[in-house]
Design a protein around this nucleic acid. Structure first.
Length: 291
DNA sequence: AATATTTACAACCGCATGCTG
DNA sequence: TCAGCATGCGGTTGTAAATAT
């Protein structure tokens, strides 16, 4: 199938946008919307291609864009989502209201990637040193990993945490009212104090991931859950329309289901959510057919 | 102060995909 | 069913600003 060029390049302006151009574009979109990007430049009196206008609008001029530096919480969220979603910037952006995929991609390449590799380098020796101690301190926890997390004892802990924090987590963008709802961690002190076991391979974890997953194992083992264990695989093993083998979609569905499940079942605080979403998503990745 | 290097970010490019006639 | 078109998306580039030498 042939693909037409997005615009005729002759005579069209490229490069940075001027204030005047921005104003023309904003005025035009405010007046007419943007039902057709290709026709829009002419309508607005701009010597730009439609694609350029669309990018300028979606990445910079849109009124709902949050300008300014990323907060540490936002950065943390990006790191966690990137572990789950990979380079799917638009998917990550959809979970960070007011931020664009381009912006997230930029901050990842310029800051977060380096930050992560730096902290990995710094913390890897510590992790290696600490792991044996942790394992020694948590024999019970380790045993529990082989069993279901639904023991009476675990449920007791769970119900306590329920009492302490009954926040329902809504991951969909429209449910994020502000930054604090997105990320601000409200760590259950009980869980924080509990030593971490080593269910997850630390070798593949950055320090930020490590820090965010300090309590992950406890979460996984002790607090999750009223979530039906079958749930996590239901999506994966549900019949898939052969005519539409889109693994990305399957993954999306799986993640959406994860999110929805938490909306319904969550008595977890934010950290727990992220930790478990990450963990479960890794499982999903492993179970998914090769992309 | 001048120059070199690094960082941050806007913008571009081209492929993929969905929609429409 | 298929070609053409519009848009979404991720990778990459260009460049201004900041920082180091």
């Amino acid at each position: 199938m042939g693909r037409s060029p997005c615009c005729e390049k002759l005579g069209l302006k490229r490069g940075p946008w001027s204030k005047e151009e921005d104003d023309l574009l904003i005025n035009c979109i405010n007046k007419n919307g943007h039902p057709n990007w290709r026709a829009l430049p002419k309508l607005a009196g701009l010597l730009r291609c439609g694609k350029s206008c669309r990018l300028r609008w979606t990445n910079y001029l849109r009124p709902d864009i949050k300008r300014g530096n990323f907060t540490p919480e936002e950065e943390d969220t990006i790191i966690k989502l990137h572990k789950v979603l990979g380079n799917r910037w638009s998917a990550i952006a959809s979970r960070l209201p007011g931020r664009t995929d381009n912006e997230i991609k930029n901050i990842w390449h310029t800051r977060l990637k380096k930050k992560m590799s730096k902290s990995e380098a710094q913390e890897t020796p510590d992790i290696q040193e600490e792991t044996p101690e942790i394992q020694e301190e948590t024999p019970e926890i380790q045993e529990e990993t082989t069993e279901t997390s639904k023991s009476e004892e675990n449920l007791d802990i769970h119900s306590e945490s329920e009492n302490s924090n009954l926040d329902i987590i809504h991951l969909e963008p429209e449910n994020f009212k502000d930054d604090s709802e997105i990320t601000s961690p409200k760590i259950n002190p009980e869980i924080q104090q509990q030593p971490s076991s080593s269910v997850h391979s630390s070798s593949s974890m950055s320090s930020s991931e490590d820090s965010c997953s300090k309590s992950m194992d406890q979460i996984m083992l002790n607090n999750l859950l009223e979530v039906d264990d079958d749930f996590w695989s239901e999506v994966l093993w549900a019949p898939v329309d052969d005519s539409n083998h889109n693994n990305d979609n399957n993954l999306d569905l799986s993640l959406i289901s994860l999110e929805e499940n938490y909306q319904i079942n969550s008595s977890l605080n934010d950290n727990w959510f992220w930790d478990d979403l990450f963990s479960r998503s890794n499982e999903l990745m492993l179970e998914l057919p090769e992309l």
